[in-house]
Simulated scan of single mutants.
Amino acid sequence: MKSCAPLSLALAMIVLIVLSIAIAGCSEGVVSYDILVTKFDAGGHTAWSTKIGSGNQNLATAVTETPDAGYAVAGLVADSPRATAYPRVVRLDPDGRVLWDRTLDLSDVYSVAITGAPDGGFVVAQNINNFDSGKVSKIDADGQPVWNRTIDSALRAIIPARDGGFVLAGSRTFYIDANGTILWNRSFSSTSIREAAGGGFIAERSGVPYPDTSVFYLDNNGTVVWTTPVGSRESGKITSLFEDPTGDIEAVYTFYDSTKNKDVVMYMESEQVTLGRGGDITGRQPIVAVDPLTRTTDGGYAFLAYPFPGSSAFTTLPHSGSSLHFIRLSPGGAVAWDQSLGLSPAATPVSILQTRDGGYLTVVLVPS
C-alpha cells in the first residue's frame, strides 16, 4: 500500500485558517471546500474524477492505495467552515466510486493520516491539537471501528512496519503493535518516517516549529543513531524522503525565498539532498518540484503546483490568473510534461501519489 506525504504546506495553511476561524466563531467570507480525487494514467491522461462533498466543509489530509487498486481518503468534515471538524475516511473503488463514507468519532481534529492494515482494514492517526494530543484508531475493511487509543502526542504520519505493527511520527515517535499497544515511545519528534531497507527507520523533522530541517536514522528500538541537518530556513520543509537501492537517502527540501516574491506571490525553491548510509551529505541538486510531490518509479518526480509569474518556477499557493498544473520531472530533473488541470486559483493541492499501475492519483480541495 502507498500513502501520501505529510500534510502539504498549502493544506496546512488552509487547515490553520479553518481552525482559527472556528475558534474565533466567525465564518464571513470563508470558502467551503469539496474534495476532488482524480486518477491519471501513466501518460497523464484523466481516467476518472470524483468529487467528495456533503454540502458542508470537506477537507482531505491523506490518501492511501488499497490492495484492490482502490483508495481510502482521510480528512475532516464539518457542518460549516466555523464548526467542529471531525475525522473522516472515504473508501473509493478502482473506478473512483464511493464505497463508504465514515465519520470516525467525535474528536475535534487538526489533520488525519492513514495507512492500510494487513487484514484489509485501516489504521488512522488523528492529530488533535498539533502539540500533545492524538488518537490512533483501527477500522475494518467496511470502515467500522475496531479499537481506539489516545496518545500524548500530535500524530502527523503513520506507516506500516514489517512485523504487522505501525510507526507513528509526531511530537513524539511511537511504535505500536497490530492491537494498538505501544511497544516503544520516544520523546524524539518527527514529521514523517519510513522503514529503512536494512532495518531501523529513516525520519525527518521539518516545518513549523522546526526551523532546522534534519534527517535522522533510528535503530529498531527508536534510538537516534545519527542526525544530519539539511536546511535552516524557517519556512523549509522536507516534501519527499526516499531511500534508493544503494542505501543512499534522497530528501527534497522545499522553502520560500521572500527576496524573489512577485506581486505578493510566494517564490518557492527546492533541492534534492543526497545522504550516504552514515548520514553524510554527498550531493545537492536544485529541482523545480514543490509540495505536494511524489517520487516516481523511474527516479523522477510528479507534483501539483501553480506556475510562478514570469518564470519557470512553481509555487504551492494559488494566485490570481493562474490554474493548477500537473508536472512530471524526468530522473535528471527536466520537465517531461507540464499540463494545466483547468482548476481555478481557489483550488488547493493536497496530495499526489504514483499508483501501482504506473498512473497517478491526485487529491485537490476545490470550492463547493
Rank of each mutant, 00 (worst) to 15 (best):
F131E: 13
T150V: 12
A125Y: 00
D132V: 08
A125G: 12
V136F: 00
V136W: 00
L155Y: 05
S133R: 11
V146D: 09
D142W: 06
I139S: 01
I151W: 01
S137T: 15
Q126G: 02
G143E: 10
A157M: 09
D152F: 03
W147R: 09
A157I: 02
S153C: 11
S153M: 06
I139D: 00
W147S: 10
A141T: 14
I158P: 01
I151Q: 00
K135D: 10
R156C: 08
N129Q: 05
D140H: 07
I151V: 15
S153V: 07
A154H: 02
F131Q: 12
A141R: 14
Q126F: 04
I128G: 00
I158R: 00
D142T: 13
I139V: 15
V146N: 02
I158F: 01
S153I: 04
V136S: 01
G143N: 09
A125K: 00
D140V: 04
N127Y: 07
V146G: 02
Q126V: 04
A141D: 11
S137M: 15
T150H: 05
A154W: 01
A141H: 12
N148E: 14
N129E: 06
G134Q: 01
F131N: 12
I139L: 02
I159F: 03
R156M: 08
W147M: 10
A154S: 15
I159Q: 07
F131G: 07
P145M: 07
N129S: 07
G143Q: 09
N130Q: 13
W147G: 11
S133G: 11
V136T: 13
A157W: 09
T150Q: 10
D132Q: 13
I151K: 01
R149T: 07
D132T: 09
N127H: 07
N127D: 15
K135T: 14
A157H: 15
P145G: 07
D132S: 15
V136A: 08
